[in-house]
Amino acid sequence: MAISIVRVDDRVIHGQTMTLWTKARPVDGILVVGDNIAHNTLRRKVLKAAANELKVGIYTVEDAPDKIQKGIDSKKNFFLISDSPQTFSQLVDNGVDFGKTLNVGPMNTRPGTKVLGRTVAIDQKDYEAFDNIANHGIDVQFQLLPDDEIKHWSTMKAKYDSMD
C-alpha cells in the first residue's frame, strides 16, 4: 500500500503536517478529500500553497475512490487527509478500503462539540462517524504529532459518553 497515512485534520495541510509528518512518513503527494474543500476555490489555492513542492489533489467524496485506489496501487507514497471524520465514514459506507488505521489530528472547538483533549473537540455527527469507522475494523488513533502517545477511539468514546 502506498497511502502512508490517513488523517483527519481540520486545517488539512499546515506547519505540523509539513514539518513533522512529512519527516515521520514517506510522502510524494497529498490527496485531500472533502466536498466542501473541493468546491471552494480559495481554500484549494491556500492548501496548494501550504504544500510547498508537494503535489496536492483535492477531490469530492464521489471522485475520491478512484484516486485513492490509484494512490494505493502507486509506487509513490501519498498522504490521504480530510478535515472531517464524516468524510471517511462516507467513504467506508461506499465500500472504499483506505487501510486499517485512521490517524486523527486537530479538531477544533465548534458549536455543539465536546472537548475531549487539548486539540480534539467532536460533535454528535463526528462521534457517529468515528463509531462507524471503528465498527468497520479500522483502528482510530488520536495523535497530534508523530511522537505523541496514541489514544484510541474506545478511550475517547468513553470520555465523550461520560460528559453531559
Partner: peptide, 15 residues
C-alpha cells in the same frame, strides 16, 4: 522565503 502568487490550482497528481 516564498512569494505568494494567486494561481489557478491544478489538480494533477502524478500517480
Amino acid at each position: 522565503i516564498q512569494i505568494a502568487e494567486d494561481e489557478e490550482p491544478d489538480n494533477d497528481i502524478d500517480f
